[in-house]
Amino acid sequence: MQTFHLAEDSSAVLLDWITSGRKSIGEEWAFSRYYSVNEVFVAGRRIAKDATLLEERDSQAGPLVARTLGETLAPYSCYATVIMYGDLVQDTVRHLSAAYSAITVFKQHGPPALVWSLSTICDGRGCIVRVAAKDTEDVKVWLGKALSDLEHVLGLDIYRRAFS
């Protein structure tokens, strides 16, 4: 569990992600349980709580065919959550909100290589972005582009270290 306490005039970008493991040696989703909670408080008031629970199901739990954790999470091998809040991230929040509003859903023959969603928080002063992709590198590249407005906030060197 990670808890962040911010002052009213603070800004923050929190990234939490999980990958399927080292596929090349057969470690793809090779665990039975993963639990993560991120909470963000601003001036003592909770503005976000994001929980992720990945758990192998009991094969005797019901009438459905038992699936492994890997089968349940397929075809994606990387899941990321970004929580943003504050004045310094407003350009990024607006940019992502506009991009998300423009998404049109069409029937597809299979799952896309990358999917994402956005939920605004604190009357638009922040947002939670969730991303899933077939490959970890795809998430990293997508985040690098999606969060590019932060380059002027963080500075070019730090931004490139994070996303190159």
Rank of each mutant, 00 (worst) to 15 (best):
E39T: 15
D58K: 09
S36C: 14
V105H: 15
C122N: 07
S164E: 08
L114E: 07
K49C: 08
E151P: 08
S164N: 10
W142F: 15
E27I: 03
D123V: 00
W142D: 11
V105M: 11
S11A: 11
T72A: 04
R160F: 00
Q2Y: 10
D138H: 12
Y35M: 12
P75L: 04
V37C: 13
D87E: 11
L147F: 00
R67A: 00
D135Q: 10
F4P: 01
A98H: 12
A30L: 15
E137F: 04
L156Q: 11
E28F: 00
A162L: 09
K134W: 09
C122K: 09
P112F: 05
I158V: 09
P112W: 06
H152D: 02
V65H: 12
V89W: 02
A74H: 05
T52L: 15
L143H: 04
S117R: 13
A162H: 01
W142C: 10
V40Q: 03
T104Q: 15
S119C: 13
A74I: 02
L15S: 07
R22W: 09
A30D: 15
L156N: 11
L114C: 09
F4D: 02
A74Y: 00
M84N: 02
E27C: 10
A74S: 07
L114W: 09
C127M: 08
G124C: 11
L54F: 14
L54S: 05
T72Q: 07
V139S: 03
E39G: 12
A51N: 08
I18L: 15
Y159I: 03
V40Y: 07
S32G: 12
P75V: 03
E56C: 06
I25F: 04
T92V: 08
L96W: 03
V141D: 08
L143N: 03
L64E: 10
S77T: 05
T52F: 13
D138T: 14
A30E: 14
S117M: 09
F163I: 08
D138L: 02
S10N: 12
A61M: 01
S24F: 04
H95R: 13
A98R: 15
D87F: 10
E39W: 14
K107H: 15
G155Y: 08
D16R: 05
E8M: 07
R161M: 07
D91S: 13
I83D: 01
I25G: 10
V131I: 15
L150T: 02
